[in-house]
Design a protein around this nucleic acid. Structure first.
Lengths: 127, 127
DNA sequence: CGGAATCCCGCAAGATACTG
DNA sequence: CAGTATCTTGCGGGATTCCG
């Protein structure tokens, strides 16, 4: 985006920024992706997630699940049994999101070393 | 990922999570993407960014630029003139990252309405 | 089992002021 | 022009406790 002119192209790219940011907000947060990932291979129960995701607190699990459900990425199903049973299932939209995340993962894997080197160079140069 | 078993597939997916998270950490932060985007069409100067990116503070601009430079996503070039002139240029790695972000943007654009509806439904149902 | 409520803390980020 | 230095605040997230 040329910041010098004020034509439409700047607007377009600004909207692009916003769109990306909205995705990132949705997916950011320490646990969202982990939860989504854990639910990809079929319905998962609350306690399964709690045990399976390393380091997550009960609170954050609940909160993140609520947000994912709210955004329509997860479906919450309650079985009125005793003891209660609740299952979380990823929606089709979430699967598509996951597919999109793959290219990002691929980028990260390709450039992990480059970044590590860049950091090391930067850090040792400045000190 | 089946959280019940402890086979390799769980490990693979856990690593996938970590890789994605590393990307997100790099790109998260309120301003990183905006700055990257603004620098995509050629070298950009500090003040250009400050004026072009809506709402960014001088401090956050500096900090974000430093981090992007440190990770090798941006190159900082100083021209020892007076007044000083500094140009920031995206690296090839950053361009590839941007390309990867496109599929994410595409996903967001496809599902923006769906998400908005989901939220509204969720919010009105719970209240 | 699957939560909700409450308290607490660190850190990202804003505001403001000064400088080579 | 292109920063740095402080001070301050908001909020994400952890720990703990209680509940249907």
């Amino acid at each position: 985006m040329s910041l010098r002119n004020t034509d439409v192209s700047a607007e377009v790219e600004h909207e692009a920024t916003c769109t990306v940011l909205q995705v990132l907000e949705r997916v950011s947060g320490k646990w969202s992706i982990g939860i989504l990932l854990a639910a990809m291979n079929g319905p998962v129960r609350f306690t399964e997630l709690e045990r399976g995701i390393n380091g997550i607190s009960r609170r954050m699990l609940t909160l993140t699940l609520r947000n994912l459900e709210r955004d329509g990425l997860l479906t919450r199903t309650v079985y009125p049994t005793v003891p209660p049973k609740v299952e979380y299932t990823v929606t089709e939209m979430a699967r598509e999101l996951y597919d999109s995340l793959r290219s990002l993962t691929a980028w990260a894997e390709r450039n992990l070393d480059t970044i590590a080197t860049a950091r090391h160079t930067y850090d040792t140069a400045k000190r």
